[in-house]
Design a binder for these strands. Structure first.
Lengths: 91, 91
DNA sequence: CCTACATTTAGATAGACATCTAAATGATTC
DNA sequence: GAATCATTTAGATGTCTATCTAAATGTAGG
């Protein structure tokens, strides 16, 4: 199942919030955490799921780890969803 | 959360399979069930989740209930996913 | 109206998941 | 290298979810 992890990752509102945040550009884990009412450990958990799904990339810079959207996977996702609109290429 | 039910619905592979099937056109619950290795009750459960998410519409015709993709919600979904690519309209 | 067929609802169960606190790892600076 | 800050990992817990079988509902035809 090529998109299982992707859609699972998107099924949580905090994770979608994180992706929306990252539209504005890369951000460190701590900065991301400030925007949500959950513990840092929980944010870290969400980031690992988004990363495992390929939706985000990480880039350590000293103390901080910056996360950013992975546009190529976002494009794959757009492809899948758009595919629901008729053009009959299977799966 | 405007898209919570939508993404939750998409997070299951059987439900995505159903949506892919319905690209070809409307189908009755029984016909849908034939394509997946789960009980009819389980298919019914998945259909109710897809329906609650607005992704499919139902249309009873005598004994049968035909399901079809709801393109307007598919379009909303495309809008959300495409929105990840930059154009900064929030959420 | 009784039988047969299509689908849903009810109730139960096993596995998955979001969350927390506490502890561990990684990296900088003095 | 000890102290400090950023982040992750471990372990526990309550809730959610996909699935099943059995029973109920809806619909058509004899």
């Amino acid at each position: 199942m090529r998109f299982q992890k992707t859609f699972k990752a998107l099924s949580d509102p905090t994770r979608r919030g994180i992706l929306n945040m990252l539209k504005e550009g890369p951000a460190a884990a701590g900065e991301i955490g400030e925007h949500f009412a959950v513990s840092g450990a929980t944010i870290s958990h969400h980031l690992s799921i988004l990363k495992d799904a390929g939706l985000i990339l990480d880039d350590r810079q000293g103390k901080y780890i910056y996360y950013e959207l992975n546009m190529s996977v976002v494009d794959d996702l757009i492809g899948w969803v758009t595919g629901l609109k008729g053009e009959h290429q299977d799966e």
